[in-house]
Amino acid sequence: LKHPLENRWALWFYKNDKSKTWQENLRLITKFDTVEDFWALYNNIKVASKLSSGCDYSVFKDGIEPMWEDRSNKCGGRWLITLSKQQRHTELDRFWLDTLLCIIGEGFDVYSADVCGAVINVRAKGDKIAIWTTNAENREAVTCIGRKFKEGLGLPAKIVIGYQAHADTATKSNSITKNKFVV
């Protein structure tokens, strides 16, 4: 008997091919809804640190596409962890796995319902991991999720992480998006 997860999740893979559109580069790989099927998948794909630059993994609840435009995401935002180049070799894979375990295990108390998914961006200038939530105005849910996320990754209290509304990221005029919340 397998151990059912609260939600069914979908793994998406993005590979940057400049001859194609952003949406054409995004592929749904597979879905899983048990602990055992999660590991069967995780143990058989490349760890994030071995992906080429420009690739993403996204793990989202079934029915939510990993893009701002999805109706579950359009009013939401993300808790963002930015990593240094060195951290790719020391912490990236553990951080990503712990992020996945937080979301599929519903580790955010009553606020797990606000979680849409998680994304890892592998980039030459610095990798990023984010948890996306559905409503950037739900202060209580957003801050609780942020605190649990930090805890789940074992980040010390002195490290501050920020939450950015997708609407602000989408309309920014430079590479800096203001933080709506920090924990």
């Binding site: 609260e6 602990v35 055992e36 590991w39 712990d98 797990s112």
Partner: peptide, 20 residues
């Protein structure tokens, strides 16, 4: 009830054989 699993519980299944 809600199916909540903590990190240690989930990690315990990583290398479980699929069939026993």
């Amino acid at each position: 009830g809600k199916k909540q699993y903590d990190r240690e519980f989930l990690l315990g299944f990583q290398f479980m054989p699929a069939c026993v």
